[in-house]
Structure formats: C-alpha cells, structure tokens
Amino acid sequence: MAFREYKIGCWMFGISLSASMFVTIFLPGLDISSVSSTELALEKQLTYGRESAFSYEDPFLQGKGKPIKVVLTKDPMNGSAMDETNAYVFEAGTPFPAGLNHTNILGEDVKALSESKGRIAEADENGTVFLVKIDDASDTPYIENATATRGWTPAKVLSASDHTIMAGSGKTMFVREGCWWCHTLLPEQTQDWQSFGRPPMLGDFNGESPTTFGSDRKAPDLLHVGARNSSREWMMLHFFNPRLVQVHSIMPRYDYLWGDKDAQGNVIDLEAWDVGYQKYVSGETPYPPEVPDYADNTEIRYLIDFVLNLK
C-alpha cells in the first residue's frame, strides 16, 4: 500500500471524466453541428451580426458594428416597385456573422447553394448587402450576396429603404440591460405555444451568439412578441414606464435609454417627468405627463426595433 495505489484512482478519475465529456460534449457536438441552418437561422444571423454580447467590435455593448435590416419596396437600382424584401446591410467594417465566417454553421446544402447561387464567397467587409432566399427546387434556404448578384451596394439600399430596423444593435441592448433575466426567448415544447407561440426547432439557432434563452421567467416569453403586439407606441410607453400601460407590471423603467434629448431636440428631464407621474399616480392629475419621442439612433430605438422584429 503505497502511493502507487493512488495512480489507479487518478487513472480511473481521468478516464471517467474524459468519458463523461465524450458523451456529454463530443457526441452532442457532432449531432448539433450536423444540423443545417433554417431560414430563421439565416435571418437571425444576418440581423444580429457576428456577436451580440462582448466582442472586439463592441466591447462596451453599445450596439456598434451590427448590420442594419432594411425593408425595401422598390428596387435600389432603378427605383421600380417590387415585392417587400428584407435586405441586410453590412456597412464597411461590420463583421460578418458566424455562418459566413465559419465552416459547418450553414449546413452542407445551404452552404453549397449560398456559394453557387448566392455567391457569398465574393462578399467582403468593405460593405455588402445580403438577402435570404429559398431555392424553389430543393426548398432550401440560402444567403444571397446581393452586392455581387444584383449590384446592390449598402449606400443604394439604405437610400432606397422604406425603413431600417436596428435589431442587431437592439439585441445588444437586450443582453446588456439584462432583459433576458426575466423574459425568456424559448417557448417551451410543452404548453407554451398556447400563449407564446411556436417553440424553436433544431437549426433555428445556427450562428446565433449568445442565444440568451433565459431560464428564470418572471415575465412573458418574447420569442414571438412582435407577432402579438406590433405597436411601436405601446412599446414606447411600456419601456418608458411599464406601469403606464400595465399598472401591475414589475418591469423596471427604461426611460434612461432615451438619452439626453428627444426627437424634437428638447432636453429630457426624467426627474421632472417623475414628479408629474407621481401626481398622476396619486390622482392629482388625470393624465400622466407625455412620454417623449425618442430620437433616432438612441438605445431605446435599437431595443424597440429588436423587440418588434421578434415575429
């Protein structure tokens, strides 16, 4: 009985831990990595960009370096009318999402189509516009590099846009402000579909990071919230002070995301607003004070764009 006895223990320990990791990391990794991106996964990647949390392009989580989702109803090249199309604009310097950078994210068929029909290999980070298309013959989604196939440059697409959706920057706000501590993004596969909509499927997440499923639900699931409530005004009131639209809400106020000035350039005085609000709560005034319109490119705009984009 000497120390050599512990060698057997150490070996057994190493073997069991390795075997455990083989079964719980390597095997599931093979399974998960063999799944192709769905159309939803392609849309999410192109909307949210490379990374929504801490990253080189956005170390302070301000929503920098994210693509812009653009809704087009006229052709950016000649201005003629066309069916409503979502284009994903990656301006110069915006890093591409995982599907375009890493192998194995798109899935074999999707990758082959994206390369042959979508010409994604020609995309460069000097500014590219992408579309999500579905191949009719094989019913497979793929990414199209519209800059290569149609000559759509970011500048042309942005100037032809009906409106832009800053959902990529918005997801960063969602992560930074900790929305996901209460609002899950994962309707459960059991009962939740009744109130929160269809649960996500395998392949819906390819290339998304972080997935922010959330685990501790203290508030409604948000995966399909844009389909339930598409009112920008409601969202604005609700983010400014949730108790304006839902008196029993326990959500914090996000009025500080409005920044210093509102859309008209007036200084926003949150304390003064709260004084007026307290009068409204105590019944001294019949109405709460006006909620200021948010200026463009404020953090609240990003966040509302993100939430409304969750269809």
């Binding site: 057994m12 069991s16 079964v23 719980t24 994962l186 395998l202």
Partner: peptide
C-alpha cells in the same frame, strides 16, 4: 465516484424544453 460519474453528465436536463437531440435529454 458517483459524483464524478453521475454528476458530470446530466447538463442537458437544464434544457429539457429546448430542441436538443432527444437522446441527450433522455440520457441527461
């Protein structure tokens, strides 16, 4: 030894309602 062997494997049971492979959820 049962900590090493059993406690290191059920991670997937935190995601029982997510679309992970079914065998993994059963095993977990």
């Amino acid at each position: 030894w049962s900590i090493v062997v059993f406690y290191s494997t059920p991670a997937a049971h935190h995601l029982m309602s997510s679309p992970l492979p079914e065998w993994l959820k059963s095993f977990a």
